[in-house]
Design a binder for these strands. Structure first.
Lengths: 354, 354
DNA sequence: CTGAAAGCGCTAACAT
DNA sequence: ATGTTAGCGCTTTCAG
């Protein structure tokens, strides 16, 4: 209802008997316009309820003041917080956010890249999907759209990256478990070829090596992320695998998991077997999800700087976007940053430390 | 690097010696164009790597094939899943998603409405922020942008709504607790004037009334959502309040909470007081968050149909958007739908039922 | 300081 | 079946 045609510059111009572009200049704050005229124009714009049309604007300016955000799946609290931080920071800088979800599918990934290109976004933040080589991201970047990878690094692609220092996080968590008395430590990681998993495994191994411990064990949890988005974070498989570990012949002193959700499965498997978490078997997680502190016993875990990552990534992207115009000092190498994660020690690993 | 100017219709036209318009028709699948010409044009478009410019397109067509999604905070797993479902369904229908986060602030809410208006989105799905009367949403709707409210109903605004039948969910959960032997039941709800909370309280009261029980108790958990987005879902306050309940003189037989996170706080308070969850005090939650099934004891809770809500809301919105053009049968009343929630009975409420 | 004209990329009339 | 013209709403020359 109501005449839903939007108010345009022309309407204001006509109503005031001035030219369209005087109105434009008045409203965009250009100087070359009389004080009094400007006041009249602003008043009329207000009265008519004028809102600028970004499409038209972007068509001529070439920039839509939009950044793309490509995420695999927001149900991971880590990504959810990332989204918050990014949206907030982006909006503060005047940018709107176009959200694309890939659900870990290579098609989704490709589509997202395509969509971002169509919309000619000013820049994009992307968590690359697991499959494929991410070459389309490189192409998008080459097409002149600044890109920053989030959380997952595409190491051989010379793309900016902001993520977590998972290697160090895993190293310290593992060292802590060892310091708490664990001699045999098992790591459960999702079976996904992405840098965070690889980095955590590396950190885990380094810690054990440093401690002179052999017989490390890495257990792969089959990922279900590729199947369904309904159940993206199921502790079920971790539970099953933990049961196998418990039933096996060499019960580890400690179990480290790549993800707090897995810890839930591990807790249950241990408890059902009559083992006490934090006593018989130590447990360490990753993510510091909201429930971690409230489990019984509370879960020792590595907190990820999600908000920092979001802010850092946006700022880096904005810098790249600006550097795009300044036709200088732009061709420096890819900027890869790993923000520190923080070990949060709780009851699930306290044996021996008091 | 590379000549980053985008390929346009004009480029193809020039390169082939035909008119811009023929190219447009060939590419958009209009019939009036020779088979052979079309083939040549398509090939050339492919070769040049042409991607259409939605800005230009939308400027003339009036539609940007974009829908807005306004959410208060994606860190709530319920909203995260909603986002997934909506993005998926929207993309399937060819729409891009513009994401706006309001963080429960009235300014954010207002800004979001403004931004959606500027972008002239084809429609919007919104979780209205708690404060304010939501009148700007009504205005946006009147301005000709179809709107569907998500999860929170603005009852007096004649806006479409898709949410959960919280009343019934709370009713059944409470009835279940009573059937499990609880005579005194306490409800902990977030202190927020939104329809889901009001509905759950109503359902809770009805169940107790039906059972002829008096002495119901509703405890308000002060919300922290308005303060910080860093800690949107803290069980801390629920924990504190549960402690007070435990220390009080009349320990309830059962505690019902409006949100699984609160249950975490309740679990801890009870456990620390030496009370057994599911034996001494029954506990029921809302949301069926991924951890619910893995708590010890596993949490009885009400599962919310998040994916259904997303799909239903998008479909409803698409219908409204279509009805927008057909200048008929559009002025029917607001469509308000409450999808059924499902009680999931687990160990935290099993006493007496075997 | 202001207006007139041109054009961003695309599509929808009207020609032909 | 194709080309020409016009225009979406806005900004940027270039005149006056």
């Amino acid at each position: 209802m109501a005449d839903s045609r939007r108010v345009t510059l022309k309407d204001i111009a006509k109503s005031l008997g001035v030219s369209v572009n005087t109105v434009s200049r008045a409203l965009t704050g250009k100087d070359s316009v009389g004080e009094e005229t400007r006041a009249r124009i602003k008043a009329e714009a207000e009265r008519l309820g004028y809102v600028p049309n970004p499409m038209a604007r972007s068509l001529v300016l070439g920039s839509a003041m939009t950044i793309g955000l490509v995420i695999t799946n927001p149900s991971n609290p880590f990504y959810a917080r990332l989204i918050s931080a990014i949206e907030h920071r982006g909006r503060a800088a005047g940018y709107s956010l176009m959200l694309l979800l890939t659900e870990e599918s290579p098609d989704g990934d490709q589509n997202a890249a395509q969509t971002l290109l169509r919309w000619n976004v000013d820049g994009a933040l992307v968590v690359p999907a697991v499959q494929g080589d991410g070459e389309h991201w490189a192409r998008l970047s080459d097409a002149g759209i600044p890109l920053v990878c989030l959380n997952r690094d595409l190491a051989d692609l010379e793309l900016d990256y902001v993520g977590v220092d998972y290697e160090r996080g895993a190293y310290e968590a593992t060292r802590h478990l060892v310091a708490s008395g664990a001699r045999t430590v098992c790591l459960m990681e999702e079976d996904l070829p992405i840098s965070p998993v690889a980095d955590r495994i590396a950190g885990f191994r380094r810690a054990l090596a440093d401690a002179g411990l052999t017989g490390e064990r890495v257990v792969s949890v089959p990922t279900r992320r590729l199947e369904s988005l309904a159940l993206p974070w199921e502790p079920a498989d971790a539970y099953r695998l933990a049961q196998e570990i418990v039933r096996g012949d060499r019960l580890p002193d400690a179990i480290m998991v790549g993800n707090d959700y897995f810890a839930l499965g591990v807790y249950r498997a241990l408890t059902e077997a009559g083992l006490r978490v934090g006593e018989d078997v130590l447990v360490g997680g990753f993510g510091d999800h909201p429930f971690a502190a409230y489990l019984n016993p509370s879960l020792t875990t590595v907190a990820l700087p999600s908000a920092d990552i979001g802010v850092t990534a946006v700022d880096l992207l904005l810098r790249r976007m600006k550097g795009q115009d300044d036709h200088d000092r732009d061709h420096d190498r890819a900027d890869k940053r790993r923000l520190p994660a923080e070990l949060v020690v709780r009851a699930s690993s306290r044996r021996g430390v008091t």
